[in-house]
Write a protein that binds this DNA or RNA. Structure first.
Lengths: 326, 326
DNA sequence: ACGCTTGAGTTAAACGTTTAATCAAGTCTG
DNA sequence: CAGACTTGATTAAACGTTTAACTCAAGCGT
């Protein structure tokens, strides 16, 4: 490997001058500076990040902690984070917390132990982050006190609920994945809050028996609002099995706008999370903190966007019964 | 931060002894060794990876390059890799190549520039990797000469094709995503090779018009074999739109066994990739190379597994289909 | 002619480890 | 009991940068 020293002896100057020229910092004449940079380029000089890290106490690496790397949103987050980081010449080290709170703490420790300069953590349901020696940006949900930035899950829920109410539904069921998740709870809460009096909303969770859901439909619910696209696809399948058509008999909505939303039939009405904006802001907040410009931009929330597709429609006339489509 | 030096002065010994005791390397008396380790533990000593990296020339970090981080398999790969790496006390730095071959080269360079000890690259369709100063494990497909380990895509194709043939289909269409992808081509080729003479197979690509596909069905094809679950879901939707039922009228298969495979209706027959085994082996090969035990275990392939669900069935008798001898 | 500033570089220390070389005792060996 | 190992620990160099402090010469105003 070719280092600063090599260039220095080759050009007959001191290493400090090379360092200065390359960093554009100290006093180096225009001419010599040029010459140094040119030669470094020619030699394909790549600074030793390890040495730099040792000296400056910063590694130029960010840690990304996800509750579970198999999370369907992980790819988009990882992508945006990695691109945003790269633009700032930072690396991204990933760590999985495998769904457990303890593992999350462990993951964070490992990353800190590796000397990351900052941490971006997509937080586990309801866990608390211990104080850390590096800046942290937390992505979760607005109702989380430690949150730095997140989608407006409640707002998104309200958005889709309002849409359903607007087109005339009066009996709906809100179908959540797992009540221990803050995000899921917020989405459900948002939906509930947006439904005016006069609308009957029943909350069910997928941790229970799906028969309850079918029951509710039989008893006259005309819309099912789920907290995730995958859940919606499951519901869609269950409905199909008992011959309930979507959206003719019941309207169905998802959450997150995953790729499958457009692939299913009918294409799913859902609410999209601007993952890119969120990740971008998180990184932004992080890099600001790194540079000491500790702006208190905590608690920002990013609006969600309603995407109306084919799975929602004006409710049919008669109160719902099981019917087979013609 | 508390370093080796701190412990040394505190215990009145030299730093070298501390280092030796902690690494279990040099000559240190049993008793003193214990004392040092205990004290280090108490003080919460964490070695500076930067310093170590500088001295040893190894960072303890692996690079993971994916063709596109939004790839649906990325989460599982990332998860397995990160866990396997962690077990070996290695970190994982991710980089996205955004689907472009040039970006892939760039991503690799960046990671190497960051001093990763080894590289795990899930290769872009048909790109060639330049020679690198660090060990590399390539995951792609067996037909790629640079491949280190991969799923047996062709074998998987054969598996699903044989299943379709076994249950009696005689006219099928093989539906691929994009012919520039080596993986997709291998899957299609595997399917084709497993179909005995007497079976009419037509190959179509999703880059073309989907009408061709519906056409083929109208002309008597009773099964559609796709190269991806998402593609299968798309086909399923298209069929539904024109009133063709699955599996009664036509059987449908996917590839990869994504979460959506069980969520759709009918549950999708597909072929599962043992991503975990692949990632594990790749890391294994990589770490072996790191330790100099350069075993030529190149070209290993991991079998795929057929998962029969509800989307495939014995073909129904259909009046507009020609009869033939078995 | 004098001290002052300024521009252009150099020197040398420091970052926190690892590791080869060295050393001081004590223990064998014959 | 002298030399030869052995054991336990120390010294000091090295890894490749960054950076504060310093030198040296030239230009400048008074």
């Amino acid at each position: 490997m070719i280092g600063i020293k090599h260039i220095a002896t080759e050009l007959g100057v001191s290493v400090a001058t090379i360092s200065n020229a390359l960093a554009g910092k100290g006093r180096v004449s225009r001419e010599l500076g040029e010459r140094i940079r040119r030669r470094a380029e020619e030699l394909g000089y790549r600074p030793s990040l390890a040495a730099r890290a040792l000296k400056q106490g910063r590694t130029g690496i960010l840690g990304l902690v996800m509750p579970d790397l198999t999370n369907p949103l992980f790819p988009r987050i990882a992508q945006t984070v990695s691109i945003a980081a790269e633009r700032r010449k930072l690396g991204v080290l990933i760590a999985d917390s495998r769904g457990s709170a303890d593992e999350q703490t462990e993951a964070v420790r490992r990353l800190v132990g590796r000397g990351v300069d900052g941490l971006l953590v997509v937080k586990q349901r309801g866990t608390v982050l211990e104080p850390l020696p590096v800046p942290v940006a937390v992505v979760n949900t607005a109702s989380d006190p430690q949150n730095t930035v997140s989608a407006d899950h409640a707002g998104g829920g309200a958005l889709v609920a309002r849409h359903i109410a607007d087109i005339g539904h009066r009996r709906v069921v809100l179908y959540g994945g797992d009540p221990v998740s803050e995000v899921q709870r917020d989405r459900i809460a948002g939906m509930a809050s947006a439904l005016e009096a006069g609308i009957r909303a029943r909350v069910l969770w997928s941790t229970g028996d799906i028969a309850h859901l079918l029951n509710a439909v039989e008893q006259g619910a005309t819309a099912i609002l789920t907290t995730s696209d995958l859940l919606a696809l499951r519901v869609r399948s269950a409905l199909m099995r008992v011959g309930v058509s979507v959206p003719e008999a019941v309207s169905l909505t998802g959450f997150d706008d995953l790729p499958l939303a457009t692939a299913m039939h009918p294409a799913l009405t859902t609410v999209a999370q601007n993952v890119e904006a969120i990740a971008e802001r998180a990184i932004e907040s992080l890099t600001r903190a790194l540079q000491g410009e500790d702006g208190p931009d905590i608690g920002r929330t990013v609006a969600m966007r309603l995407v109306v597709r084919e799975s929602t429609a004006i409710p049919a006339f008669s109160p719902n019964r099981r019917h087979h489509h013609d």
